[in-house]
């Protein structure tokens, strides 16, 4: 009997994929984008990989992210080539290499963003659990995701307070660093203590395996994604080894 609670199929919010599949996709895209030459057969494979995050953002209905990613990629892929002839060599020497790297970095970073966007912390923990990855890795990571918004919130409050008192400006960076970082750290350590008390009450230290109700499991869409990754890796190996 399928109820809402025991639903094992990933929904649209998770891109219909298992977190492990998404991790593999993310790794494949970032590695191949970074280490693949755009020669031979890879000339067609690399754009396919670059377009993948774009498709993902469109399916997730994130038009702004999709447009932003597309514009940035097209900009960094074409503009330096067009400007190359009109710029003095020194500017080319400084910027062209950097922009070339950026073209390779962008898809990997977008895939990482996609991974975070579509995976909740408990899904992530459940997936890592089924891969038998130690708690020593999963607890810090889940705490990190819990903490990113908190850090932002705390920092905004401290920044306002310091502006009100006119303490530390850009003219005095050391002072600014001290009077913003120190209160931030004090606040965060206090929050951390409370958080750990609450987590321990809920059995974080318990030696038993954590149960969950997350839709984790492999389906045909995961098989498609896996074969896509496999195909890309095989093509990459072929092009690297045989010079296709």
């Amino acid at each position: 009997m399928d109820t809402v609670l025991r639903n094992t199929r990933p929904t649209a919010k998770q891109m219909y994929l298992d977190p492990r599949t998404k991790t593999l996709l993310c790794l494949t895209v970032s590695f191949i984008m970074f280490s693949g030459h755009s020669t031979g057969i890879m000339r067609y494979v690399l754009p396919c990989l670059a377009i993948f995050p774009l498709i993902a953002f469109v399916i997730l209905k994130k038009p702004f992210v999709a447009v932003y990613y597309g514009t940035m990629y097209i900009f960094s892929a074409t503009v330096p080539h067009l400007m190359m002839d009109y710029c003095p060599p020194i500017i080319n020497a400084l910027f062209a290499g950097m922009v070339a790297i950026f073209t390779q970095l962008l898809p990997g970073m977008s895939m990482f963003y996609f991974l975070i966007l579509t995976t909740t912390v408990s899904e992530f923990v459940a997936a890592m659990d089924s891969l038998h990855i130690s708690k020593k890795f999963t607890i810090p990571v889940s705490v990190m995701f819990r903490f990113f918004p908190t850090i932002r919130e705390e920092y905004a409050a401290i920044r306002d307070a310091m502006r009100l008192r006119e303490v530390g400006s850009w003219r005095n960076p050391m002072k600014m660093l001290e009077y913003r970082l120190v209160p931030l750290l004090m606040g965060l350590v206090a929050i951390g203590n409370e958080l750990s008390a609450s987590a321990l009450t809920r059995g974080l230290n318990a030696p038993v395996r954590r149960t969950n109700m997350c839709p984790i499991g492999f389906h045909w869409q995961d098989a498609v994604a896996f074969s896509f990754c496999l195909a890309v890796i095989v093509l990459f190996t072929l092009s690297a080894a045989l010079g296709w």
Partner: peptide, 19 residues
């Protein structure tokens, strides 16, 4: 041995480090 509290601390400071 590392307990839950240590791991939480690790997570907090890793988050600060990363950001």
């Amino acid at each position: 041995k590392l307990n839950g509290k240590d791991l939480l601390n690790t997570g907090i400071f890793t988050a600060i480090y990363f950001l």
